[in-house]
């Protein structure tokens, strides 16, 4: 049931606006019941659905520049958007799957048995493994969101584009008798996008001309990460700085910036 004009939710992140404050990460932790650890500096053990990386042009002072790169799950559609995402195609349990009606890659924790094949397949490190059962300090367990099921030891988790917010928005649409129409742009927005104080993140239906992301993704400075792999991600980045756009892919020294993006566009 692949439809060309089906809803395809995606995100555009303007890296020129991102200040690296980390509000998106905090919002995500509390929205999605993401367990945090005493020592979050131990990156082998820490879990996050969106992570802000810091990249630099590696030039000596005074030419040094840095850029902050927020990375949620890219919700790859694979070549031709047929749902052949790296993680989906390797999962032996169908615990992760591609939803053709929204373009979102789902993760069902109760189905996952923790082989971590998907983590090896994901080129973006979007997936994290629960080495331990989550421990919530004090009575925090009572404050967990009932809209997102909590995870247990031995399963993989990742960003869902706050899919539960879509479910709740659909509930309202059913109640108001407008479930046949597509949801409005503001009805469904992930927590990270809402929390961004710089307005660097935009979210919506990439196939709907009325949504801001539809136009933003066509910005000449827009790119996606590792497009050479043809994963067809749904998270776009915009940067006016050429070195940032180059850092987004594995360019060879003789290749012109943007050439990979153009080659990938011919494929899709």
């Amino acid at each position: 049931m692949t439809q060309t004009n089906a809803t395809k939710y995606g995100m555009v992140i303007d890296l020129d606006k991102c200040t690296g404050c980390g509000a998106c990460m905090v919002a995500c932790y509390s929205e999605n019941n993401v367990p945090f650890k005493k020592d979050e500096s131990n990156k082998l053990d820490s879990i996050n659905w969106i992570r802000v990386f810091k990249i630099s042009n590696r030039k000596p002072y005074p030419d040094t520049e840095v850029c902050y790169l927020p990375m949620p799950c890219m919700h790859c559609g694979g070549i031709g958007d047929h749902g052949h995402s790296p993680c989906v195609s390797v999962c032996p349990a169908t615990a992760t799957d591609y939803d053709h009606s929204t373009g979102i890659v789902s993760q069902i924790y109760t189905r996952c048995f923790g082989c971590r094949y998907c983590m090896a397949a994901c080129p973006y490190h979007a997936r994290k493994f629960n080495w331990w059962d989550p421990v919530w300090p004090g009575d925090m367990e009572k404050y967990l969101s009932p809209n997102v099921s909590a995870r247990m030891r031995g399963v993989v988790e990742k960003c869902s584009f706050c899919f539960h917010r879509y479910q709740l928005a659909k509930d309202r649409a059913y109640h108001e008798g407008r479930h046949q129409e597509p949801l409005g742009e503001n009805e469904y927005q992930p927590a990270c996008v809402e929390s961004c104080p710089a307005g660097a993140m935009t979210f919506g239906d990439l196939n709907n001309p009325k949504h801001a992301v539809y136009t933003l993704k066509k910005n000449p400075h827009a790119f996606r990460l590792l497009e050479r792999l043809q994963t067809n991600p749904k998270v776009y980045y915009i940067s006016s700085r050429e070195w940032v756009r180059r850092a987004g892919d594995n360019y060879l020294s003789h290749e012109e910036t943007g050439s990979i993006k153009r080659a990938a566009a011919n494929h899709h």
């Binding site: 049931m1 939803d99 053709h100 009606s101 789902s106 069902i108 997102v148 869902s160 539960h164």
Partner: peptide, 11 residues
């Protein structure tokens, strides 16, 4: 006409 995607009934 279809069983639905996992994320339709799961959260």
């Amino acid at each position: 006409g279809h069983k639905g995607a996992c994320f339709q009934c799961h959260k």
